[in-house]
Design a protein around this nucleic acid. Structure first.
Length: 434
RNA sequence: GGGUGGGUGGCAGAGCGGUUGAUUGCACCGGUCUUGAAAACCGGCGGGCGCGAGAGCGUCUCGGGGGUUCGAAUCCCCCCCCACCCGCCA
């Protein structure tokens, strides 16, 4: 969601930003709509002023018991009603159209986001002084690695067949030590972010109204990507990510500057219909309708959001460093970014079984894009209300972390060694599946 | 599922047809006092939109929409949401 005044003042920059995201120019039509709207508002205000002035005089005349004068004024002003109703209706319609049009447009990329069409154009990201060497090394297994589902199915810890009897494809039943390992990974990450990274643990609702989904940008454009549960005459969405409830924690509110930044984290199930990815990643746990994820959300001032973005990335990276899983970070190019993002880093974990890097976390800064949709503001030091900035990042996806642990820590006999940091959560077990 | 009460400014909480955008308290900002701070006292202080270079002016806004009226936070209708009680249930 954008400020129409900004668009009107910077039409070329706005269209250029849209072009970078592969969208058609929109500034001139939006500005035209806004001009029409403003002319209606101006006329409406003038008519209202006339009516209000007369009503005030009528009140005075009545108070002075001057009934004749009151009647004369009433006759004069009553003719304004139709015009008023018409102008009010037009204003409302124009407002709605403008809002609808603007709410369909994706966020504008920051200047340092690389140009590109799709994921092939994403570029590796390193901080100053950093390199591959500063990240956990690739494992040298010395045998042909298996994929996670081959390992899991072999010892009955992952059951896709039974899951499909219950729920169809893209579901899994985890059992025994695999189920426990999944739980251990989630607990470990949640503890890390709450104990060491300053995030407040939250258990949010998993079903939300349409309004929060609009607030974070999932709706209205991507209705088909989610599950909805009927509720009374309406529906509630099953959250596709905890970003939705966590970010909307501050919706329609006026925060004070000294309580920022706010940092929230949650371990929740996420539900996605995966409507657009039929046939992709159909085997295994990589792409499921339901998966657990630890999410981080920060609410900051506009000045602080860029630094917070870098900070949040390091929080997510720390998970993989402690698990000692090799990964890389890429800056998403303009064509691969999500709808609400100004800039996004993806963390891709190395999966030996797949012989490739796969996304395990995505960390985005959204500027005031979501804040405008949610009406989330704070009172700045000069006491003026300003929109907050919002950020979200996975820290990290639990299901995919489970895959990464299993594939990276697999042994030649098909067993999996438990990473050191997870052993306390596994009751001291150091190896499963043997 | 049955019943009742309620949605007002950052928060709390009055108002219930006519200069009421709204008493008051808290919070916040400025000032006096003080070595400093607190307290006390004085003053200021909602948000959106439009016009304007600006000071400012106008307008909308008391959950949302519609209606009655010259005029609605106040009256009527519909919807949404919240709280409480009863029943049922983890």
């Amino acid at each position: 969601m954008f400020d129409i005044k900004w668009i009107a003042a910077n039409p070329e920059a706005f269209d250029a930003a849209l072009a970078r995201r592969g969208a058609h120019p929109a500034a001139s039509s939006l500005v035209a709509m806004d001009e029409e709207r403003r002319s209606v508002v101006a006329e409406l205000n003038a008519v209202q002023e006339k009516r209000n002035g007369a009503s005030r005089l009528i009140g005075q005349a009545k108070a002075q018991k001057d009934e004749d004068r009151a009647q004369a004024l009433m006759a004069e002003v009553s003719g304004l009603k139709d015009r008023l109703a018409e102008l009010e209706a037009r204003e409302r319609t124009l407002n709605e159209h403008l809002r609808t049009a603007i709410s369909q447009l994706p966020n504008m990329p920051l200047d340092d986001v690389p140009e590109g069409a799709d994921e092939a154009d994403n570029i590796p990201y390193f901080r100053a002084g950093e390199s591959e060497a500063t990240r956990p090394a690739m494992p040298s297994l010395g045998f042909a690695p298996k994929e996670h589902y081959e390992l899991g199915e072999a010892w009955g810890g992952m059951d896709f067949e039974t899951a499909s009897k219950l729920s169809g494809s893209r579901f899994v039943v985890l059992k025994g030590q695999v189920a426990r390992l999944e739980r251990a990974i989630g607990q470990f990450m949640l503890d890390l972010h709450t104990n060491e990274h300053g995030y407040t643990e939250v258990q949010p609702p998993l079903l939300v109204r349409d309004e929060p989904m609009f607030g974070t940008g999932q709706l209205p454009k991507f209705d088909g990507d989610f599950f909805f549960a009927g509720h009374g005459d309406g529906r509630l969405a099953l959250i596709p990510t905890a970003e939705v409830p966590l970010t909307n924690l501050v919706r329609e509110s006026m925060l004070s500057e000294d309580e920022l930044p706010l940092r929230f984290t949650a371990l929740t199930p996420c539900f996605r219909s995966e409507a657009g990815s039929a046939g992709r990643d159909t085997r295994g746990m990589l792409r499921q309708h339901q998966f657990n994820k630890v999410e981080m959300v920060s609410i900051t001032t506009p000045e602080a959001s860029r630094d917070e973005h870098e900070r949040m990335l390091t929080c997510a990276e720390e998970v993989l460093k402690r698990l000692a899983i090799h990964y890389r970070v890429v800056t998403l190019c303009t064509g691969d970014m999500g709808f609400g993002a100004q800039k996004t880093y993806d963390i891709e974990a190395w999966l030996p079984g797949q012989d490739s890097y796969r996304e395990i976390s995505s960390v985005s800064v959204c500027g005031d894009f979501q804040a405008r949709r949610m009406d989330a503001r704070y009172r700045a030091a000069d006491s003026k209300p300003r929109f907050v900035h919002t950020l979200n990042g996975s820290g990290v996806a639990v299901g995919r972390a489970l895959i990464a642990v299993m594939e990276n820590y697999q042994n030649a006999d098909g067993s999996v060694t438990i990473p050191d940091v997870l052993r306390p959560y596994m009751g001291g077990v150091d190896r499963i599946g043997s």
